[in-house]
């Protein structure tokens, strides 16, 4: 951190560049055109930073309680690698499609953007359906939320991620409904961009879930 009195060393934009006081030399991408857009970028990142700590807490609890199966099935017996790989591929692809949506948004191609977003929605929904099938399967094997501390910790962590996917789908649904017939504007661009950040973050968390919960559960 700099202790000199220079403007904007730490910040995203120099304070002087705001409120039309000084014109920026090069125009920013569309999602950062408005003050609201710049706020949304920072706000979404702050939210993601906070959420990562929330997930960290659930990961920590899961890791601490992963052996407390109380005679029920262990992770090793439960987890089906093929299923998890498929789920991972789905979510990873949906993350890719959402970044393609942003790419098209920056080119003001509303149609392509919506098509990619729709693909994202469908991939996310398939992931969720797969997860629902998986949980149902586990419950039939005797691994429930209430059966053991392992169960509570597992469903808390993975279910919390699933809830994030669900919320993301609802959010994306609202975005698509609102923009069904509209063009890309500086008003809507930050909203799409914020959603894509959120969606990537949900995928980022999944990377750790499949590595730490499923794969390590299979090994250790």
């Amino acid at each position: 951190m700099s202790l000199t009195a220079e403007p904007g060393r730490l910040g995203a934009a120099a304070p002087a560049a705001r409120a039309g006081a000084v014109e920026k030399t090069e125009a920013p991408p569309i999602e950062l055109a408005t003050q609201e857009g710049r706020n949304k970028l920072i706000g979404m990142w702050l939210f993601i930073a906070a959420e990562s700590v929330l997930f960290a807490s659930f990961f920590a609890v899961y890791l601490a309680l992963r052996h407390s199966t109380m005679g029920g099935p262990t992770g090793k017996e439960l987890f089906d690698l093929k299923l998890v790989f498929l789920a991972t591929a789905l979510l990873l692809s949906s993350s890719f499609t959402s970044v393609m949506a942003v790419l098209n948004m920056r080119r003001l191609q509303a149609g392509a953007m919506k098509a990619w977003l729709l693909a994202t929605w469908l991939l996310g929904a398939s992931f969720l359906a797969l997860e629902a099938y998986e949980f149902n399967h586990y419950v039939h094997m005797g691994h429930t939320f209430t059966s053991s501390a392992f169960g509570t910790a597992f469903y808390s962590l993975v279910g919390f991620h699933g809830a994030h996917v669900t919320f993301g789908l609802l959010w994306l649904f609202a975005l698509l409904v609102r923009n069904l017939r509209r063009e890309v504007t500086p008003y809507i661009a930050p909203k799409v961009y914020a959603f894509s950040l959120y969606w990537h973050f949900v995928d980022l968390v999944w990377v750790f879930i499949f590595s730490v919960v499923y794969l390590m559960g299979k090994v250790a």
Partner: peptide, 9 residues
């Protein structure tokens, strides 16, 4: 004050 400035990619 002014229309928001941005440049499409």
């Amino acid at each position: 004050a002014a229309e928001p400035m941005f440049s499409p990619s």
